[in-house]
Amino acid sequence: MTRRAALFVLALIVFAVSSPLLAPYEPGRAFRDYLHAPPMRPQLSGVVHPLVLADRLEQRYEADTTRTVPLPWFGAGLDAPVFLLGSDSFGRDVLSRLLYGARTSIGLALMATLGAVTLGALAGAWAGYRGGWIDESVMRVADFVLVLPVIYVVLVLRAVLPLVLPASTVFLLVSWIFVAVGWPFVAKGVRAIVAAERDREYVQAAQSLGAGPARILVHHLIPACAGYLIVQATLLLPAFIIAEATLSFVGLGFPDPVASWGTMLAETANIGSVARFPWTLAPAAAIFAVVLGTNLLTADHDTKNDR
């Protein structure tokens, strides 16, 4: 479980980081003559028939079977763009935006997961190790955050800030908001583990060797929670991906030109357009795939525990 989860997360990071290399076009590149172009099917020989506008008003296209262009990675010109997953209402390549969107959405979720796990581990470990009123107050705060109507809290926190902000600011802001609502899930479990481990012999040994609380927490007690932390991370990661998509979908996340899975989905809010251009739902499929991946990891874990 641990290794597979690590591999899966590593694969996500590699995938997200390498999006500029994989994406055929810039995410913001709009081909004005190709609004809502359908996905083009590559031929077996690795070439594509370019699209010709059949009806501008209906945004209907036909493949010109007399001509061929190579795939975008093999030198297709900008005059005859190739949309393997179609294009959106601005004529932007959905595949490129999906890849760049992966960087934004997965990157944000990874950052927030890392933050929430770190903060939760530290707060939980501190509470569990110290006990007494510190324990009491940290856990009260955690309990309180846990029963909040999280979605409203996130919405209010985001809506309070100016709606139009640079993408990097939104990135930081939203990940902080996610950390703020995500840490108690981690902290509660870590506290329980640390409170149980605190009196074990290895901790006493470390104490008698003169180790301070910080060293004991970081070197001995938090590593004891590693398995738990990884499971929590695989639960938080998909939740944050969905949360980003939700926020951007309703227009409270990233501003439109930024490619994220949520901003891309915002376009599908128009029922009439989604029925005619189903390829704009591609980010929904991507979200499904990532969430399924993390769920398979945890499902695998569950069945092993059953045995």
Binding site: F249, F288, L296
Partner: peptide
């Protein structure tokens, strides 16, 4: 079930709305 767990309401509702709008089986909105 594992597949169903991976369909958050956002994705599920978009997909169902798409199906409904496409087929006209159910009113949308």
């Amino acid at each position: 079930s594992v597949a169903g767990l991976s369909v958050p309401p956002l994705v599920g509702s978009l997909f169902l709305v798409f199906i409904a709008a496409r087929t006209g089986w159910l009113p949308v909105g």
